[in-house]
Design a binder for these strands. Sequence first.
DNA 1: AAATTTGGTAACGAAATGTAACAGGCCGGG
DNA 2: CCCGGCCTGTTACATTTCGTTACCAAATTT
Lengths: 241, 241
Amino acid sequence: MPHILVVDDDREIRDLLGKFLGQHELRVTTAADGVEMKKALEDWNIDLIVLDLMLPGDDGLTLCRNLRAESDIPVIMLTAMGEDVDRIVGLEMGADDYIAKPFNPRELLARIKSVLRRAQAMPDRGAKPEGTAAGFAGWRLDMDKRELHAQDGVLVPLSGGEYDLLAVFISHPGRVLSRDQLLDLARGREAQPFDRSIDVQVSRLRRKIEDDPKEPSLIKTVRSGGYMFTPAVKFEGGENR
Amino acid sequence: MPHILVVDDDREIRDLLGKFLGQHELRVTTAADGVEMKKALEDWNIDLIVLDLMLPGDDGLTLCRNLRAESDIPVIMLTAMGEDVDRIVGLEMGADDYIAKPFNPRELLARIKSVLRRAQAMPDRGAKPEGTAAGFAGWRLDMDKRELHAQDGVLVPLSGGEYDLLAVFISHPGRVLSRDQLLDLARGREAQPFDRSIDVQVSRLRRKIEDDPKEPSLIKTVRSGGYMFTPAVKFEGGENR
DNA sequence: AAATTTGGTAACGAAATGTAACAGGCCGGG
DNA sequence: CCCGGCCTGTTACATTTCGTTACCAAATTT
């Protein structure tokens, strides 16, 4: 599920977008500065950035150029005025698309879909530098086929949701992920008042990938914090990050 | 040098574009009707199509959909009005970009460059001069004869609908396609309230192309999302990268 | 130690999916 | 024009998936 980062100072716009993009992973931030941006790009697996040009100063364009230079994540630019100059400069600066405010939300959604479609079909674009497979402790997760193989190559059947959850864990190793984050990242929805679905899903996943689900070694629970995936940090040989 | 095909009834526009793009090392040809289109795509090595929506009837959209389903050549749409409906429909129909007339030629150029840049980085996009055939996991789909051949060359009989569906899947590898999209792309109709026809058709197709229909490896189902075609990229030895 | 909070998971049910069976439409050969 | 096959949409039912709830245990607090 695509993760979208919206950078905009206008709360109204952010809310509007949030509403229309509900079906996607959506991160909204006012973070105009590079520091928070970088963090956001790491924490969440951002696939697409919707960037408001009208940030203080001409940070918008600079930011866009930096993003393009560093991350190669697709960018859609918003701007208040539909002046040709702006849009041309923007496109030449590397933005993947451009929309002038005020815009029709449905149009933005359509463009987002379009850009994501392209990025997905293009191997070397998007925020997923990893290949088509990720491994941990002898296991192999085939990202193409959405399949998990055990050490001996035997296919371990995972439901779609279990795969999504595991994929999230794998892309955030050694980091504590709150239930909210997991729910958001793996399911793309908000937590409800007494939502235990993540607990249950973790339980189901453990049953399939842990040697002893009662004594989990891969997915640790962090009381009052969430869960943490720790691949192969087993013994002292411990190479890690 | 990239070849660009401009499809527009308006001679004035064609001349303008031809003149404008001509001086930018872009070869421009014009063709008005659908018949000529097909010929043009075969005769010349078209890398990009600039398509005017305002063709008689809604041929523009239909044409765009067909192009996207079959050829996978990038499309930029032109339209007379900046009507939201048009542009949304267009983008959802698979166009890669959109510009409203009257447009600034420099903007069109910027967008053309942008699209070409993307297409270049994307292996399976862009003009395909010869083979009207696509392959996946040892299979070969003959687009001319609308026939599917197995690894050993044996012809696997597909019904027309099955072929259409498979063709849509093949032209959108690794992308989740909703039932609505599939219905639209493969059948060209709208979904009805409790429409399960896609499910059934997928089931029928799986029966013919999957080793084990119970454990599909080519056409994955994405719960509450749709289906995804993943051309088997199996590295059994599971080593490098 | 009792009370409270937090996590694990079995069980239930709603929703989504797979697919067999049925039916209507279309087409080519009598 | 009729008949018998395909093809494909619809329906019905089985199965799977996943969120919710409930209850228990472990951890933490008071």
